[in-house]
């Protein structure tokens, strides 16, 4: 039924879900239950895709023609309206708050394949393991330094980093100081 096993060229070894080769996946399903299953599948797919390509933020209009929302083999696409509906679902509680709109015009959104607090936990764990509690680290070295090259948060979006650290600050587990481009952080 599905032209399974099709390789999507030019998107280095990302394994597309089976539903991606299922034409109805790209049309909003009229039945509520089916629709819920469909939205859940889209959410998981988007998170996996963004994680694979290390995409932190999606601008919908720019994404419509990329393989994420357009299946060139099937010539099926997710319309802007439907893409918004999917992100809306991801933003919602049912969608596990896996996305967050930037601004009220709903043009771009953060995709939380890891939520800020999940990133924060990763970073805090690494700081703890490497015995750097109480040391001041610059935000730059935290995500670009040689010592973090093997860490998952290596090269992560600075804005996401700040958001993540804020969750630690709120819990009193870290302190962030300094000006915009010269920020440092201390973990307790």
């Amino acid at each position: 039924m599905n032209p399974a096993g099709q390789k999507q060229e030019n998107t280095s070894d990302f394994v597309f879900p089976k539903s991606y080769n299922f034409p109805p996946f790209f049309s909003p399903q009229p039945t509520t239950l089916t629709r819920e299953a469909q939205l859940r599948k889209w959410s998981i797919f988007i998170q996996r895709y963004c994680k694979h390509h290390r995409i932190f933020q999606l601008t919908l209009i720019e994404t419509l023609d990329t393989p994420l929302f357009y299946n060139a083999t099937l010539k099926k696409r997710l319309s802007l309206k439907d893409a918004k509906a999917v992100i809306d679902y991801m933003v919602s509680k049912e969608g596990d708050e896996r996305a967050e709109w930037l601004g009220s015009e709903r043009a771009s959104a953060w995709i939380w394949w890891r939520k800020p607090e999940e990133w924060a936990n990763l970073i805090a764990a690494w700081v703890d393991e490497t015995g750097q509690k109480g040391t001041v680290l610059t935000l730059y070295e935290l995500v670009q330094g040689e010592t973090v090259e093997k860490q998952e948060f290596y090269g992560m979006d600075m804005e996401v980093l700040r958001k993540s650290l804020q969750t630690l600050v709120k819990k009193g587990k870290a302190q962030v100081f300094g000006a915009e481009d010269q920020q440092g952080v201390k973990f307790f």
């Binding site: 039924m1 034409p23 996946f25 790209f26 399903q29 469909q38 010539k75």
Partner: peptide, 28 residues
């Protein structure tokens, strides 16, 4: 359709109805 036994593809000249067998993914 109402029983989720078929899914509809609206991006065709006439709506096409598909059987959702084989949609289960490993990483879901």
């Amino acid at each position: 359709l109402a029983d989720s036994l078929v899914w509809v593809d609206l991006q065709c000249r006439e709506p096409e109805y598909w059987s959702p067998q084989g949609l289960i993914d490993e990483n879901e």
